[in-house]
Design a binder for these strands. Structure first.
Length: 362
DNA sequence: AATCCACTCAACCGCGGTAAT
DNA sequence: CATTACCGCGGTTGAGTGGAT
């Protein structure tokens, strides 16, 4: 039996694992009388335990409606989605998974899901691509992260929309990381290895659909074909354009362009527009300057896009900010972006719930 | 067979929020 | 308003388990 060896506290109350006899007494008492005051329960029930221990045993193990056993794929996805919105609010997450306790979900997260996300190159705290990775060595993981939403095949459409937002962030991050690395490579005379060519990266990003066949890929614009890695066709155009510009700039390196504060924040505002509009149709403003990308996102507790772009770019113009101006908190921003999704009441509830709570800094 | 080690999960601990006094 | 008691939550602990060596 897992757990702790039997101990007693300073009051002589038993600690450690529960025996079947104790379980029986507790269940029997609660079924007859309800738990009432947890503090007084042990004495009334004849248990040599503290009330806290009784409550925990009941809520995490003995409650009749507890579902035991492996988490389903659907439950797994729900936890991931909810965690992206709620953070480590295990009890809040548990309310959306009937029969699962906060403790069980927390354990499952810490032992399985966290690792799973890390393996995919996703920071389990921010739900964004990890930035502590060697971008080129870990390109496959980042691409997997970008393509995360494509891996999900469950009926939770609303959840998928959130996932889509996360994937969109991953795309932006990935594009930025690639450009940054290429920019760095182009200015590094001591580079020991040859950076991947634009073509190689574009092939990785776009797969056979995009390779050397711009017409074909443009013809797919209307039909919104299943481009790999979740990149929309216009995003690939944009990305390719960025690479081409970069390639040109490599001959006359102007590295500072990548790192100076953005003088106009079209990309940022566009990103905000993305979050302020339907998240299912992300777009990169085709008129924006290709190299103007958001600052590399730190692996920080800022986990949601509105906050990220608000804090990372101090140079919002007022018009751009106005998209978020009515939102004083991150969750309210999420709420705003979902305003046009009248059927999103489920997720709105979650967000409302979260916005009423303090945001965990973990 | 013995040992090591990573993993799991029940249970504990401490803190913050809130209702009662 | 201040204090106290209680509850619930999130983080952490540690014994059991099973696979690898």
């Amino acid at each position: 039996m897992m757990g702790r060896s039997p101990r007693r506290d300073e009051n002589g109350l038993k600690k450690g694992p529960w025996t079947p006899e104790e379980d029986h007494i507790l269940v029997d008492y609660i079924q007859k009388h309800g738990h009432g005051s947890w503090r007084s329960l042990p004495k009334l029930a004849g248990l040599n335990r503290c009330g806290k221990s009784c409550r925990l045993r009941w809520t995490n193990y003995l409650r009749p409606d507890i579902k035991r056993g492996k988490f389903s794929e659907e439950e797994e996805q729900t936890i991931i989605n909810l965690h992206a919105v709620l953070g480590n609010k295990w009890s809040a997450i548990a309310t959306h998974l009937s029969g699962r306790t906060d403790n069980e979900i927390k354990n499952f997260w810490n032992t399985h899901l966290k690792k799973k996300l890390l393996q995919m190159g996703i920071d389990p705290v921010t739900h964004r691509p990890r930035t502590d990775l060697n971008i080129l060595a870990n390109l496959p993981q980042l691409l997997a992260a970008v393509n995360f939403s494509n891996l999900i095949n469950n009926p939770l459409d609303n959840a998928l929309r959130l996932q889509s937002d996360a994937a969109q962030l991953a795309k932006i991050q990935l594009m930025h990381n690639i450009l940054q690395v290429l920019g760095t490579s182009s200015t590094s005379s001591s580079s020991c290895c040859t950076p991947p060519t634009i073509e190689v990266i574009m092939n990785l990003l776009a797969g056979p659909t995009f390779r050397g066949n711009h017409q074909l890929y443009e013809s797919q614009l209307e039909g919104n074909s299943n481009l790999p890695f979740g990149f929309a066709p216009h995003e690939l155009t944009q990305l390719q354009s960025s690479f081409l510009n970069l390639e040109a700039s490599q001959h006359q390196p102007q590295f500072s362009e990548y790192h100076q504060p953005m003088k106009d924040s079209k990309i940022c505002s566009t990103n905000n527009d993305q979050f302020a509009s339907s998240s299912s149709s992300p777009s990169i403003n085709p008129t924006s300057t290709p190299l103007q990308l958001p600052a590399l996102a730190p692996a920080s507790p800022e986990r949601l896009p509105a906050t990220v772009y608000q804090t990372e770019n101090k140079n919002f113009n007022q018009k751009d900010i106005s998209n978020l101006s009515s939102t004083s908190t991150t969750f309210e921003a999420w709420g705003d972006l979902m305003d046009d999704e009248a059927s999103d009441s489920y997720w709105r509830d979650i967000i409302d719930q979260a916005s009423s709570q303090s945001w965990p800094i973990s």
